[in-house]
């Protein structure tokens, strides 16, 4: 009989394409990797509510206000699904939030950039969600069952996000001179950070090899980035936006676009905390977490009182 609690048996299951469930045996490294990745993903969704939230109260029409609210609500919901998926691995939401606040856990660098004009809402939906969805579609097949199921639901819900972003961009590019300028300005600021969302080349990513072996990650960073570039550049051109990269060429043979060098120094600088909004984003989360503590305590106290009364009534 094979030993079901061995790493080799675990790897055999992974290689057969089986999904791993919460109570199944898994190597400690697999569990840790997933906790790190899923909680980071959850934090990204939740912190990601802020740059878009910055425009809810200034959305220029009743339609756009509802769309934006519904979209940000989705991001919150996705954070929620992912926190719950991570909880199946034996970490509580309380701990995950504490790790976020003490900077032990990270969130996506992209949300450390500011949203400065209304077209940023378009650019975030189109470019940031567009980049995220390339990653997320790939993660639907990830080996951990609860993570995979959360991703399936998330991808289904995200499908309108990118379209609403592109719709805003298209509308503004068809609008007044001021609107066009806003759209191009947003494009200029979000293009490169969006490309950085796929992280550095895999050879420079510390966790890639295990993640591929365990089928947590199904495609390399560069493959995913290329997919995003290839589908996005024609979309930009269609509505008259200039991609802020003089080196772009279409390789006719492969059908892929080649881009200029990515400024990874900026990426590492922002990761280290020197992005325009790192402090602001985390401060916001910490502030409202503490502000709401008395409400959560009250809910618990009410539950306890009620339970006591029910026992007394029996």
């Amino acid at each position: 009989m094979h030993n079901e609690h061995s790493d080799s048996h675990f790897q055999l299951r992974i290689d057969k394409g089986e999904h791993i469930e919460a109570k199944d045996y898994m190597p400690e490294g697999y569990r840790e990797h997933l906790i790190r990745q899923i909680s980071q993903h959850a934090h990204s969704e939740v912190i990601g509510m802020q740059p878009e939230g910055n425009w809810i109260t200034r959305a220029p029409s009743l339609r756009s206000k509802q769309i934006l609210l519904a979209k940000i609500q989705d991001e919150g919901g996705h954070g929620l699904y992912l926190y719950c998926a991570a909880e199946t691995l034996g970490i509580s939401r309380t701990e995950m939030i504490e790790h976020l606040h003490t900077r032990k856990a990270k969130y996506s660098n992209i949300f450390n950039y500011p949203s400065l004009n209304w077209a940023d809402i378009g650019a975030i939906g189109w470019l940031v969600d567009g980049a995220a969805i390339v990653n997320q579609v790939s993660l639907q097949r990830t080996s951990y069952g609860p993570y995979s199921r959360a991703m399936v639901r998330i991808c289904k819900e995200e499908s309108f996000h990118q379209r609403q972003g592109y719709e805003i961009m298209a509308k503004m590019m068809g609008g007044t001179k001021d609107q066009k300028a806003m759209a191009q300005d947003a494009m200029n600021r979000w293009w490169w950070p969006a490309l950085m969302m796929f992280d550095p080349h895999d050879s420079e990513s510390p966790h890639t090899s295990d993640a591929v072996k365990w089928r947590i990650k199904r495609e390399t960073n560069d493959e995913l980035r290329q997919k995003f570039i290839d589908k996005t550049i024609p979309q930009a051109e269609l509505i008259g936006l200039t991609v802020p990269d003089k080196d772009i060429v279409l390789d006719k043979k492969t059908g892929h676009y080649k881009i200029g060098p990515i400024n990874w120094e900026e990426f590492y600088r922002v990761i280290k905390g020197h992005g325009p909004c790192n402090k602001q984003r985390l401060d916001h989360h910490i502030f409202y977490h503490h502000t709401g503590a008395w409400v959560r305590e009250a809910a618990e106290a009410y539950k306890a009182k009620k339970a006591k009364r029910e026992i007394a009534a029996v």
């Binding site: 939740v46 509510m49 802020q50 939230g53 809810i56 109260t57 009743l62 206000k65 509802q66 609210l69 519904a70 940000i72 609500q73 919150g76 919901g77 954070g79 929620l80 926190y83 916001h284 409202y288 502000t291 709401g292 503590a293 409400v295 959560r296």
Partner: peptide
């Protein structure tokens, strides 16, 4: 809608947004 991302916990954030969306839709 001003409360989005500011609720005491994430579930309540979604709940308040739902109410907000009902009201703006009605408006």
């Amino acid at each position: 809608s001003e409360l989005c991302s500011k609720a005491p916990f994430i579930e309540e954030d979604l709940a308040l947004t739902n109410i907000s969306l009902d009201m703006i839709g009605r408006a």
